[in-house]
Nucleic acid binder design. Sequence first.
DNA 1: CTGTTTTATATAAAGATTTTATAAAGATTT
DNA 2: AAATCTTTATAAAATCTTTATATAAAACAG
Lengths: 229, 229
Amino acid sequence: MSNKVAILIIDDEVQMRKLLQITLESNDYIFTEAATAKDGMIMAVNHPPDLILLDLGLPDEDGHTVLKKLREWFTNPIIIVSVQSSEEDIVKALDNGANDYLVKPFRTGELLARIRSALRGIFTEENNPVIINGDLQIDLSARTVKKNEELLKLTSTEYSLLALFAKNEGKVLTHQYLLREVWGPGYINQSQYLRVFIAQLRKKIETDANRPAFIVTESGVGYRFAAKE
Amino acid sequence: MSNKVAILIIDDEVQMRKLLQITLESNDYIFTEAATAKDGMIMAVNHPPDLILLDLGLPDEDGHTVLKKLREWFTNPIIIVSVQSSEEDIVKALDNGANDYLVKPFRTGELLARIRSALRGIFTEENNPVIINGDLQIDLSARTVKKNEELLKLTSTEYSLLALFAKNEGKVLTHQYLLREVWGPGYINQSQYLRVFIAQLRKKIETDANRPAFIVTESGVGYRFAAKE
DNA sequence: CTGTTTTATATAAAGATTTTATAAAGATTT
DNA sequence: AAATCTTTATAAAATCTTTATATAAAACAG
């Protein structure tokens, strides 16, 4: 259920992969790697990444051919990272469907900026994290909650509480934990707050507030956000 | 109506414009040019091109500022062509919405390939700079707003605020975010500004200002521009 | 196991506080 | 001078906090 961006590196140089791994992971991307064209293709098919960084100088197959094959079905951005700096290579790669071409050695800041640029537009609408549970929809990026497609009016505290539950579906969240996360560390003894707000939330999100289906009470412990099919 | 692709060059060097004119026209692009930021903006608004080649070193205004201003409404590709080769400039430009960055002097074949790459997909996605929501029409390129086909008179700040809302329909925008985007980072505590301007905006765009349908208050958090069918 | 006691939870409603809306006056810019 | 921005003041609305009481669950004694 991660909303992180996955990037696949296809490059035969170990050092380069290591460098990219460190760079990408420290920037919150999910890093996967392949050392050969064959492995790269297989990985791309099995777990289509959001972006591919492709080296043209692979041992088992010509980079331009790999690019062409990928482009037969892969529509997300592909950025070429290559030691080849000839105009011929660059033009060929771009015309074969590469979104960008960076010559090695490159500056990591520039690579990251070009990755962000390539990803822009791909993740405008589709990739916003919406948690769906039964007839409830929680849009974390828009900060909105819908029940049966209808927008609910929640106060800021009610929303924080619900979002916290939604992010921890199925888990029992203790009173202490909920109070600390939503109200702050100084409020861990204000259990009554929690009761009041849980009651208000239930009135808004539950179909039958007397028989709560979303927010279930775990007496003596806390509450649990139950998953619905 | 020609189906040729129109490219606008904004660059103060005469030789560069001449070189690009020859290169582009011999490749079947329609070439238009501007020597200053001001002229470039005017031309872009009057005849929105399919792609803009922008030089960062313009005499009358900082290139990064020009890019930002263009990106407020211009959604087609912008490729930066600049003598500046510092990582800082490249990263800044790409993060400000440039699609690509080419350092001068460049190889014309590579430029053409990067233009082709940037143009790819342009004609698939719709990029209408007019946002329509109910009886409200916001033309981002003309900076005009119509309510029931009638032109509204908005101040520049009111317009910036409304345009920001329109670009983020359905999302809750926090006070901080709005203040930072419209007034600048030094104003994030001036919530009262926001209240005053929201009230003014509502008086102009809402049918019933007492029951706001477009700009909805999210108490304690911010405001949301609601979608109307 | 059953009824009683104790503890925990649910909910409404009143009071307190915070946040928001709006007008209008003063300051600044065009 | 006109338009716009900034500040101040105040009323209204929304939200939070507290209190009171009802209900449900757990613990316990017999």
